[in-house]
């Protein structure tokens, strides 16, 4: 899978720690680097800090210590930097989080008009292109409640892509879906990967990890337990913790 040409490092995570109020340490001294066009899958048992780590990458959570640099912009106290990073990093949530009072098209349009300052017409043209790409153009006038889970999640992906992000984060994008809808979302994600999008994906979809990911991070208790290509990771896990986890999800 990794025949594609990878670029320079686009995300650098250095010694990041995050403890929640109440003393739960979600992420401990976590360091890693991700290259442009790379697809990284993060796996791990629930409570292992995968989501927290992902949410740190676009500023939804604030690390207590350590540094995160995305596309040469440090994620620090500077509001301008933070805003810049939010524009460059797209995020897809487990629970879709579409805006229920707006149609699918309006959901995808909103940030283009408000943040990228495009005209309604320009935004709509690009939105329809994106909705077409995720295979849901004919539902553009529907409200989220009128769409199935899989359709909602595809709209959510289109909404994130509308900002033309350099990195896409996926926080368990298929966990809330009925089984027959998982593939329509994974297919969209696979296409994105083929187009060279840099992606960080928290998921337990082994098929996706095998087929698309360049490498897999296995996390537990806020730390990296093991990393490697999907092939190596599933066939020949080194650590006992990884073996135990895989035996449970397989």
């Amino acid at each position: 899978m990794s025949e594609k040409e990878l670029g320079e490092h686009i995300i650098t995570i250095d010694n990041v720690s995050k403890t929640f109020v109440g003393g739960v340490q979600a992420v401990k001294d976590f360091s890693t680097k991700i290259r442009r066009r790379e697809v990284v899958v993060i796996m791990g048992p629930s409570g292992s800090g995968k989501s927290t780590l992902l949410r740190c990458l676009n500023g939804l959570e604030e690390p207590d210590s350590g540094t995160i640099v995305v596309d040469n912009i440090p994620l620090d106290d500077n509001r301008k930097n933070r805003l810049e990073i939010r524009k460059e990093v797209g995020m897809v949530f487990q629970s879709f989080n579409l805006f229920p009072h707006l149609t699918a098209l309006e959901n995808v349009n909103l940030a283009q008009i408000r943040v990228r300052k495009k005209s309604q017409k320009e935004a709509t043209r690009f939105s329809m292109e994106l909705l077409n790409k995720v295979g849901i153009a004919e539902k553009s006038g529907n409200y989220p409640a009128q769409l199935s889970g899989g359709q909602q999640q595809r709209v959510a992906i289109a909404r994130a892509l509308a900002m033309m992000p350099k990195v896409m984060l996926f926080d368990e994008p298929t966990s809330a879906l009925d089984p027959e809808m998982i593939n329509e979302v994974l297919d969209v994600m696979k296409n994105l990967a083929t187009e060279g999008m840099t992606m960080v994906v928290v998921t337990h979809e082994m098929g996706f990890a095998r087929e698309v990911s360049d490498w897999v991070i296995f996390m537990d208790e806020g730390q990296i337990v093991e990393t490697g290509t999907a092939e190596h990771f599933f066939k020949n896990p080194q650590e006992d913790r990884t073996k135990l986890f895989l035996s449970q999800i397989l």
Binding site: N58, F93, L110, V115, M163
Partner: peptide, 30 residues
């Protein structure tokens, strides 16, 4: 409102003003 609404707006890079104006208040007022 569910906190996911804020998070989605935040991830899209919407400013606080537009988050309230376009996402939060239209839902809250209803």
């Amino acid at each position: 409102l569910h906190k996911g609404q804020w998070e989605a707006a935040h991830s899209l890079g919407l400013s606080g003003f537009y988050t309230y104006r376009d996402v939060i208040l239209p839902q809250a007022i209803r």
